[in-house]
């Protein structure tokens, strides 16, 4: 800082090293380079490469891949299938997480609960798919319990329901822990003040908590949506990969690893990325429409 203050005066013959130092660029700054180069080489470059490749189809003009995707119902219907899974799953996970997080934040053994909920996230979707195949299957404990109470057998695997349940099982803990971290960041004295002034629970939520949570919830919805939109293992293992749960990631996988058409696969990956981006932008702009003002934080 002191160097910067000294250096702001005109000093015509400064060495390059000194000039860079004024911008806080020196040996230490260079430590960031290996990681930056790595991310550029293995994240940015592949993305650009895939984007360009998607306009170089195996046959036809530069738009042939995209034209094929949007004219073949077997391909373009995957977008609707994916949204049909991702939107309800996201809404269920995030909306249920709010009241539960508000209740749990005052609990004493919060750490135990969060530890339990980290396990489904850690185990991952492949294991959850295998577990649900057994647990929800026609002979599984869930259906046996239903029959014990006199209900009929329900078909819960190899269809839409199976994938939806797996998305809730792996997605709800994620949404919950994220909401909990935002909720615990809100100063409890704000609510106590409102309570002292006679605000009931519903009014406290609507007038104090919801505006403070808006930012966090928007990010939560974005992250949950992006995750559910890229569902792959459970859609294959637990769903009907040729029917109702033929999601866009399955189409991309088949193009790349079954038809060996990397150009088409890149085009589908770009469409998938575009859909995610469009929804994220929509949610973030909707948030500023609903609430303007000192967002986030809530502490102090």
């Amino acid at each position: 800082m002191s160097e910067q203050a000294l250096g702001t005066g005109a000093r015509p013959a400064m060495s390059l090293r000194t000039r860079l130092k004024l911008h806080e660029i020196d040996g230490v700054t260079l430590l960031v380079l290996p990681a930056v180069l790595f991310v550029i080489a293995l994240f940015i470059y592949p993305f650009v490469y895939g984007f360009v490749l998607s306009f170089q189809p195996k046959a036809g003009d530069w738009l042939a891949n995209y034209r094929k995707f949007f004219s073949d119902p077997f391909l373009y219907e995957t977008i609707a299938n994916t949204f049909w899974l991702a939107i309800p799953a996201t809404l269920i996970n995030v909306l249920i997480s709010i009241p539960i997080a508000l209740r749990v934040r005052r609990m004493h053994h919060r750490r135990l609960l969060t530890t339990i909920l980290v396990i489904p996230i850690t185990l991952g979707t492949v294991l959850i798919a295998e577990g649900l195949l057994i647990y929800l299957g026609p002979q599984g404990w869930f259906n046996r319990t239903l029959m014990l109470f006199g209900f009929g057998q329900v078909r819960l695997v190899h269809n839409y329901t199976g994938v939806m349940l797996s998305l809730i099982l792996s997605g709800f803990p994620f949404a919950f822990l994220l909401t909990l971290s935002y909720v615990t960041g809100i100063d409890p004295s704000l609510e106590q003040a409102a309570s002292t002034l006679g605000a009931k629970a519903r009014a406290r939520f609507r007038l104090i908590l919801l505006p403070l949570l808006a930012q966090g919830l928007a990010i939560n919805i974005c992250l949950s949506f992006v995750q559910t939109f890229s569902v792959f293992p459970s859609a294959v293992l637990l769903g009907a990969p040729a029917g109702a749960t033929r999601v866009i990631s399955i189409a991309a996988y088949q193009a790349a690893y079954e038809q060996y058409d990397t150009s088409m696969a890149s085009a589908i990956a770009m469409i998938m990325g575009f859909c995610q981006l469009a929804v994220v932008i929509l949610i973030l702009s909707a948030r500023s429409f609903f609430y303007r003002g000192a967002a986030g934080g809530g502490k102090g």
């Binding site: 994240f43 470059y45 993305f47 992006v226 990397t262 990956a269």
Partner: peptide, 19 residues
């Protein structure tokens, strides 16, 4: 550094595998 964490692996996985 934020982008690779926010974009799900399945979206960038296929271009990455191609490269």
């Amino acid at each position: 550094f934020l982008l690779p964490m926010l974009i799900p692996p399945i979206t960038f996985g296929i271009p990455l595998a191609t490269v």
